[in-house]
């Protein structure tokens, strides 16, 4: 079933809000990309674990409370400990399908460049977002996002979600 143009626009707008928030190092903005529902979720998992059916993730926030706890960790508990860095995210929607009323399912490619204090940039990883998106009058919000990253051996640790 074809997806209406205004829905595609809402999904794209959501993806852009999401990467803009992360590139601005705004964990609040990241959190605000998710649906306020208690079961909204974010899972960041390696391609290897995903392909082999291994459940372990790099970040596993399976409820809204966990998403909020991740914001607390990055902005308060870890503040001043990790090496400062920022990112440039690029996102490209590949597919979008309508599901039951008010929901759609989307797949997008992403790539993340990590930039150190001195401006040195390196590719952190590429990957695929597998999403269930909630469509509301206020716009599109992530119900669940599974970020499957390609760098099975990550080139370095990182702190912010991708």
């Amino acid at each position: 079933m074809a997806v209406a143009a205004h829905i595609l626009a809402a999904v794209d707008h959501l993806n852009l809000r999401y990467i803009q928030a992360l590139d601005d190092l705004s964990m609040e903005g990241w959190l605000n990309s998710f649906s306020p529902a208690a079961d909204s979720a974010y899972v960041c998992i390696s391609e290897e674990n995903d392909r082999r059916g291994l459940p372990l993730a790099l970040m596993l926030d399976d409820c809204r409370a966990r998403l909020e706890d991740r914001v607390t960790f990055v902005t308060k508990i870890w503040a001043g400990t990790f090496q400062p860095y920022r990112t440039r995210h690029f996102v490209q929607r590949l597919a979008c399908e309508a599901r039951e009323e008010g929901l759609c399912q989307a797949v997008s490619n992403f790539s993340v460049t990590l930039i150190q204090e001195d401006g040195t940039a390196r590719l952190l990883t590429t990957g695929v977002y597998q999403d269930v998106i909630s469509l509301t009058e206020a716009g599109a919000f992530i119900k669940t996002r599974r970020a499957v990253y390609d760098a099975n051996v990550l080139p370095q640790y990182f702190v912010y979600p991708i």
Partner: peptide
């Protein structure tokens, strides 16, 4: 128990873990 171990292990002790990210952060320093 499997679910509990999976969500705890995913968030606690790794390179982005709640109580271990800091180890990663000092290695390069």
């Amino acid at each position: 128990m499997l679910r509990h171990r999976t969500r705890q292990a995913s968030n606690l002790l790794g390179p982005c873990g709640m109580i271990s990210m800091e180890d990663a952060s000092i290695f390069q320093r």
